[in-house]
Design a protein around this nucleic acid. Sequence first.
DNA 1: CTGAAAGCGCTTACAG
DNA 2: CTGAAAGCGCTTACAG
Lengths: 329, 329
Amino acid sequence: MTTIKDVAKKAGVSTATVSRVLNGDSRVTPPFRKAVLEAVEALNYQRDRTARRLRAKVSQTIGLIISDIQNPFFTSVARGVEDEAYNNGYNLLLCTSDEDLQKERLYLDIMLAESAAGVIISPGSEQENTIEPILKAGVPVVVVDRRVEGAAVDTVMVDNFESTRQAVGHLLDLGHRRIGFVGGPPQVTTARERRAGYERAYCDRGIELDPDLIKASNFKLTGGYTATCELLENDDPPTALFTANCLTTLGALNRIHERGLAIPQEIAIVGFDDMPWATSLNPPLSVVAQPTYELGRKTAQLLFRRIKDRNCDVMEVRLKPRFIVRDSC
Amino acid sequence: MTTIKDVAKKAGVSTATVSRVLNGDSRVTPPFRKAVLEAVEALNYQRDRTARRLRAKVSQTIGLIISDIQNPFFTSVARGVEDEAYNNGYNLLLCTSDEDLQKERLYLDIMLAESAAGVIISPGSEQENTIEPILKAGVPVVVVDRRVEGAAVDTVMVDNFESTRQAVGHLLDLGHRRIGFVGGPPQVTTARERRAGYERAYCDRGIELDPDLIKASNFKLTGGYTATCELLENDDPPTALFTANCLTTLGALNRIHERGLAIPQEIAIVGFDDMPWATSLNPPLSVVAQPTYELGRKTAQLLFRRIKDRNCDVMEVRLKPRFIVRDSC
DNA sequence: CTGAAAGCGCTTACAG
DNA sequence: CTGAAAGCGCTTACAG
């Protein structure tokens, strides 16, 4: 491996000068600069990031901790984060927490041990504040998609409450009275807020709500499937379904097709989260479309803002989802 | 931040002894070991990975370079890699190359600059050997899903040729004579091999093949959509479609639904790649199911094997996909 | 403006 | 078996 010493020798300068040129120090005189750059070029020299990180405390990797890399929502967020990181010359240390707080804490420790420049996390629990240690250590953190109670941390979310209220309201206005709600884990912010939006839509119209139509799930395909099984077995089954994230939507569709029910004639369905293939489904799905990619980019932007100025004001950003009516309701 | 010095002071030993205990050096005497472990515990000490990497050349992160984090195939592979990495105490530096060789090379350089313990890559081109520099530098590398010509490197792939031959043969045996082939970029191994399998299935049966029914694409949803548009506008349109990866399948479905064609009565379709939601589609999709998760795990296993022994024999592993007939053909 | 030297937090030959 | 010291590849006050 060629090191800064090799470059210094080749250029006939000290390693200090090489370092200064590499860091864009304006004091270095043009001829010196030229010599260094030529040597760098000739030797195809690349700075060792590890040494730089150790000495200068500058890191070019940011940590991204999400619960599931196979969830298309997080995948799209991750893509937004990655593009923004790329534009800023950063890389991604990607970790999957699996909604496991133990694993989440482990990965947060690793971010510290790796001297990550910053961390983006979608935390597994609203009540358990796992990020406090890393915040205390002075690492810039931005929380995405979910909230952490009592932590002074930048947060980027979507307006779950209003958008669900609107979508469920739409179903009610179409005449549906029994709308099954396939929700998520109660400790997750988005699950809570979307459920609240569902309840509010009923309340807005003074329509009574049957608590038997509300199911929790693990926010995965299997959970959506199981919850839908239960809902459809109700003596007075729902005429419509609101599924609270993309994976539960797919699980619900699974069961609906298995039962051979016609959408939307026999059962209408609206899902939270658009998917690239929502229009490939038959019929095309009506959805509450989150600006997932933008969510990722915005989150990364807030992180870079804080990396540049650790003391900037703490922000909470709420992006607005869009309710897209297609043919499933 | 607490360092090894703090631990040494607290335990009343030298930093060398602390380091030895942390590295499991058996020479350290039990009382010393105990004192160190207690100090570590008391101070909640975590080793700085950056310093360790610089000095001992041991890294606990592996690089994963894939073309698209939003492609469910890669996402599942990544999950397999990640689980295996987690079990071995490693983390993932994730990079998206976007099939851009420039970006691919940049990320490979970064792996070097970051002293990654090893790299897993799905290269953007079979002909252009981008990995040679990093191989020369002695970094363990495993190539997944695709091949690199002339590089002595462990490779994990799927039997694209045979599985496509079988699936297309199935369509032919059902009586289809005009089967549209929605392929991928010609420089990508999987696209080439799957196309060869398609042609061979025709050849096997001595059935003539219409080259107009073969379309290339970018392996994305948009490409699948466009190719299907073209195919369906053929004067003598295909009665079946074979789509060569999951995203093109979704693009094709998009167009098929737009045109209101009934599957499989008016057009049959078989796609390469299973998807968690293939059964959520209507009708459930017949697919060539790759063992994606296993592909990721196997790849990571080969990498760890080589990390442990840099001189072990170079292997090429081919996993077998499974042809799953559901209701779309 | 440039260089010699110290130091980031570890590990590891080398003495003892 | 343990510790003092050198060193990994950088950066950066400090002199000059």
